[in-house]
């Protein structure tokens, strides 16, 4: 385990579990430090050093949790899709394990986005919940996460589980996009437009923009951190099971 690994010649070599463990172990403290710094600065700046919105009052400050968690919730699924494709095409075990690791994080972020949305919605729209397409699609996204995690949990054989969940993730992605458009068609909603986008026209104003960007970076860092830790745990669990299997056979 401790002998030196040769220099990688291709990016894919980081998919080697041993190389992944070495590299992610080296990376972890830096990601952790960056995440803590971005989250602390972003949240403190956002909560205490920005003015209240003239219309929404101090409730607007929940944006610093709501928007980043919502973005991570969607992009976690996207990451799972990419990881599933990599597993199906190139058969790197770490990729499948990273997808497995991302699901509970994504599901939790979806819940946070839903909960903060409800807390924000109550004073703004006068209701905790409305069957608005954005809210509803997050609820549906949560259901997709639940099904995906349940399938991982139900299958005993690790490789079979990786294969089947990858297939489900790909098919589920198509249906998630379909559901999104179906929901927009089904009910035009209350939710405001995008908070952040590349063309500045519809963005939130500048005072909120920079702390929000920091919080966003913090949440993404947090996501990466959790994925690294969880994937490392999964790799170790796989090693343990491989050792047990070898023990049984000799």
């Amino acid at each position: 385990m401790s002998e030196r690994l040769p220099r990688p010649t291709s990016l894919w070599e980081y998919a080697n579990p041993r190389r992944f463990m070495a590299f992610s172990g080296f990376l972890l403290p830096f990601v952790a430090a960056g995440t803590v710094a971005a989250l602390v600065i972003g949240l403190v700046w956002g909560f205490f050093f920005t003015p209240d919105d003239y219309r929404q009052g101090s409730t607007v400050k929940i944006i610093y949790i709501h928007v980043p968690s919502a973005m991570v919730a969607i992009n976690a699924w996207l990451m799972m899709l990419v990881a599933s494709l990599i597993w199906l095409i190139r058969r790197h075990h770490v990729s499948a394990l990273a997808a497995k690791a991302a699901a509970p994080v994504g599901a939790t972020m979806t819940l946070i986005a839903l909960a903060t949305g409800a807390i924000w919605g109550q004073p703004m729209w006068g209701t905790w919940w409305a069957w608005d397409p954005r809210l509803t699609s997050f609820l549906v996204l949560f259901l997709f996460y639940l099904g995906y995690m349940a399938l991982w949990a139900a299958i005993e054989n690790d490789d079979t589980a990786a294969e089947l969940t990858s297939v489900l993730c790909i098919v589920g992605s198509v249906f998630a996009v379909l559901s999104r458009y179906a929901l927009v068609f089904w009910n035009q909603g209350l939710h405001q437009g995008a908070s952040l986008s590349l063309d500045k026209e519809e963005n939130v104003s500048d005072v909120f923009y920079w702390p929000l960007l920091l919080c966003l970076a913090g949440f993404v860092g947090f996501f990466v951190l959790l994925i690294l830790v969880r994937t490392r745990t999964e790799v170790r669990a796989r090693r343990m099971r491989a050792l047990q299997a070898r023990e049984r056979m000799t």
């Binding site: 080697n16 579990p17 491989a242």
Partner: peptide, 15 residues
């Protein structure tokens, strides 16, 4: 046993 050479075979290199 797992395959001998870890570096060549990065599919099965959990051990």
């Amino acid at each position: 046993e797992a395959p001998e050479d870890h570096h060549e075979d990065f599919h099965e290199a959990f051990l």
